[in-house]
């Protein structure tokens, strides 16, 4: 079962993880990304490409489901303005085995960072705004799954 959600509102990570765990299997892995309080950051603004976002996330989840033996995948990503400490993203996987669940969860996050159409803008405490640039380490992490 693959569940994809794009939300402005916050989500209950515990409840999402429990729902996925309820599908059976002995291993559930999850990752929650939050807005990091870096220096003078005040908030993040998350923009996305509505017509493409769900399609791109579903493609990533389908690909994980093919690579590993999974009972279910949940991917939730928020959009709009997020304050320091708020949750941005949840990736959760459920499998019979620990390694499959953890690897699939890690794969989903690495792919999400390079092929899901979201863009982060940093809103600084002094009111200035910067679009976040892509990082080579994210590109390398995503391509490391190719071989």
């Amino acid at each position: 079962m693959i569940k994809i959600r794009i939300l402005e509102d916050d989500f209950d990570a515990g409840s999402e993880i429990s729902q996925l765990a309820g599908l059976g299997g002995g291993a559930v892995a999850s990752f929650v990304g939050q807005v990091r309080g870096d220096g003078s950051l005040s908030a993040l603004e998350l923009e996305h490409y509505p017509a493409m976002t769900e399609k791109a996330l579903r493609k990533i989840a389908d690909s994980a489901d093919q690579k590993w033996d999974l009972h279910g995948v949940t991917v939730i990503h928020r959009i709009g303005r997020l304050q320091l400490g708020e949750q941005i993203v949840l990736a959760c996987t459920c499998s019979d085995h620990r390694q499959a669940a953890i690897e699939a969860c890690s794969y989903i996050m690495d792919q999400l960072k390079t092929v899901a159409p979201f863009w982060k803008k940093e809103i600084m405490q002094d009111g200035t705004e910067n679009w976040v640039e892509e990082r080579q380490s994210d590109i390398d992490a995503a391509s490391s799954w190719d071989h």
Partner: peptide, 12 residues
């Protein structure tokens, strides 16, 4: 029908 032009993505 639709072409999208944007910077490299930075979600997650």
């Amino acid at each position: 029908k639709e072409l999208a032009i944007f910077p490299p993505v930075t979600g997650g």
